[in-house]
Design a protein around this nucleic acid. Structure first.
Lengths: 397, 397
DNA sequence: CATACTTTTTAAATTTTTTTAAAAAGTTTT
DNA sequence: AAAACTTTTTAAAAAAATTTAAAAAGTATG
């Protein structure tokens, strides 16, 4: 793995070419040259180095389009592996993927409460270490660990202001404890990254991705890149003032979207409804914690339960109103419904679209496509893997 | 003016250096090299060419900071002139500026109704031609004409979908009629450009600029550049749904910000209030058209009229609520109140900030600075000039 | 079915850019 | 006040990237 041509060190072209192969599949030298706006000799050199070092493999000749047949290359799936960790407030999922985003080891999950839990960070690190050790894959072959987590995150400093206080740089801390490079980002941002690189909005430049989880997150892609705002707090869709006198939010304000339309809010409404005597297959959820209730509601809705569907439709309409505002401001090409709640995306789609039609100027709503993610619950894991590869630096190897 | 080194043609560095001098004042060769991330020999060559061609002048030696004194350069103010046109729905202002944004000829304005006026385009062109002819400045010394106008504008095609139909490319059409390069953009976008280049948010990367005119416009600077969205319709702040059952907007919907808080809406409320017997120095406005009423209200408020101040405070609070939403989504460094309404910016500031404090998460509102423009009414003209210079291409001369 | 035209790849020649070195002009320290 | 260190500018050398040309491997056509 010693690649240290002076040329590469400066231009970093080999790196860009490697990433280009990670994000696209079969590509000829000429195509890469075109995409990267670099001359063919330069790209040819970079590719031959990558082939020599086992990052890229030849895939044989493709059909000719009227001339010499192009030799196609693609990423070598097992050249490296990536550890991806996807967290929410209550649980953690962890996976080990190859460069084709195929799981090399079974994805596992475990419960981990972030709020008021001083041991959370240690528990997380232990779990990651055990998972890697049990995978049978050598650390030398792992490019790094990507972690998506809820909370206000400062990427540069590696600090999560909401959870997991490490008294300093979280990446450094976890990195030392695991012996691998670590990269963290907000869960919704990673979901957006996944959708724009491998999902419903692939290669698009202006994309808004809604993370339907226990809360409602927003990941923004602007000009093809993650947008974070001046202080990293952009995308706080869930606390915009939606109604003047709505439910009380845990942020202290009233009428926030999150307090009205998140899965947790829906679960509360469901329990209240059942207690009032609503007929539903959801009767049993009264005794469950809200989290399980959320999952139960989604399942019931997918099975046709009227009460569950009504509750989701009500939430969807409110989300739609918020998306109308978002569309007015951002004029995105696509809005993707992703995250845990994507499994009821089809049910939410109609009321969301209805609200957007009502609250949006026709010109705007007509130009924005509303889609349900097909990455769904895996989006955050894929995003975490992408995060590692975006930061991976072949020259440093 | 024949600058045609092959080097320049390809890299366009001379161009970048010229623009750098336009946007900054005195600068040494070393500083330009630093800012532009180009080697000193390259920058030195570009500067000496610009000096030779009369675009840049030497400004003598500056203080040494411990070594050889740097030779400072600056743009030559009268190397070129720019025609700047600022339109709203009812009137046009036109000016001729040097490269220091100083008027070379008095700024003039005239009435021009855009709505349902087929002759508007011809009238505009006539006026521009007469203005240039009367200025005494030769066309060879004019870099181009920048025009800011209301409406949905497609920059690439040069089409304004709302006003001034030329049956094709407006820039080409006006360009042929005037014999000068023409560039158009939305009025609010140009105001934002002006504020980010020469105004209250100079050199900042994430800036939201509110254009307080007869309507309420928004110009967005993201990552240091104008953001327009996927179809060029981003920044439609004025029609976001703000209240469920508010005033009817001319867009057909209810409760839009524009229908509740624009100068025109304030004027209507003022007239209604006077008729109901409110005490105010504004009694006379009942007979005036809404536009004059708007100006009268602003003047009365600045003179301390209680009724006028109350009306503006009411509007400001609603604008503040919209800015709270905007802040949640965009997390800008600065929000600038600009455009015609900036003259009552101080009066609006308090209620806007009050609403933002109420409706924003503390972390967000604490990080965003709310400012009143000092460019004020001239912002659109400055923005139009900037537009010309951004598109100016020295190699094409 | 050979000739003309495409497209991709390899190689050589330029061009462009940056790095390094040296000179010029000052400031600071002993 | 001379020696040592800074900073800017100019000049020469080296490196990097692109352009041009040529070769290789096809397809289309008269």
């Amino acid at each position: 793995m010693e690649i240290k041509t002076k040329a590469d060190k400066q231009s970093g072209l080999t790196d860009k070419v490697l990433k280009h192969f990670y994000f696209n599949d079969e590509l000829s030298c000429a195509e890469v040259s075109e995409h990267l706006n670099k001359s063919i000799p330069l790209v040819a050199k970079a590719i031959s180095e990558l082939v020599a070092d086992g990052f890229v493999i030849e895939q044989g000749y493709a059909q000719s389009s009227g001339g010499r047949r192009p030799l196609k290359y693609s990423i070598k799936p097992n050249a490296m592996y990536i550890v991806a960790v996807a967290m929410d407030q209550l649980s953690v999922r962890i996976g080990l993927f190859d460069l084709l985003n195929t799981p090399a080891v079974e994805v596992k999950s475990f419960e981990l409460k972030l709020l008021n839990n001083d041991a959370a960070l240690k528990t997380l690190i232990d779990y990651i270490n055990k998972y890697i050790a049990g995978s049978g894959i050598a650390k030398e072959n792992i490019a790094g660990i990507g972690i998506g987590m809820p909370g206000f995150i400062n990427i540069k400093e590696g600090i999560n202001y909401t959870y997991l206080d490490a008294g300093g740089n979280l990446c450094d801390y976890i990195g030392e404890a695991t012996g691998l490079p670590v990269f963290i980002d907000n869960d919704s941002s990673l979901i957006a990254l996944a959708e724009q690189r491998f999902g419903a909005a692939k290669a698009q430049k202006e994309v808004m991705v809604i993370n339907l989880g226990w809360g409602i997150g927003l990941g923004m892609i602007i000009n093809g890149k993650l947008f974070r705002g001046h202080d990293g707090f952009a995308g706080e869709l869930s606390h915009i003032p939606l109604s003047e006198d709505g439910a009380l939010c845990n942020c202290g304000k009233q009428g926030c979207l999150e307090a009205e339309a998140s899965m947790l809010a829906v679960a509360e409404k469901a329990i209240a409804g059942i207690k009032e005597g609503k007929i539903s297959s959801l009767k049993h959820i009264i005794d469950n914690p809200n989290k399980l209730a959320g999952d139960a509601i989604m399942e019931a809705a997918n099975n046709g339960d009227h009460f569950a569907i009504d509750l989701l439709a009500e939430a969807g309409y409110k989300i739609g109103k918020a998306l109308a505002i978002l569309t007015h401001i951002m004029n995105p090409q696509t809005i993707v419904l992703s995250g845990r709640g994507a499994r009821v995306g089809k049910i939410l789609l109609a009321p969301i679209q209805q609200a957007m039609n009502k609250y949006c100027i026709p010109r705007l709503v007509g130009n924005t496509e509303l889609k349900v993610s097909d990455l769904g619950f895996d989006a955050e894991l894929v995003g975490a893997a992408v995060l590692v590869m975006e930061n991976y630096n072949i020259e440093k190897v």
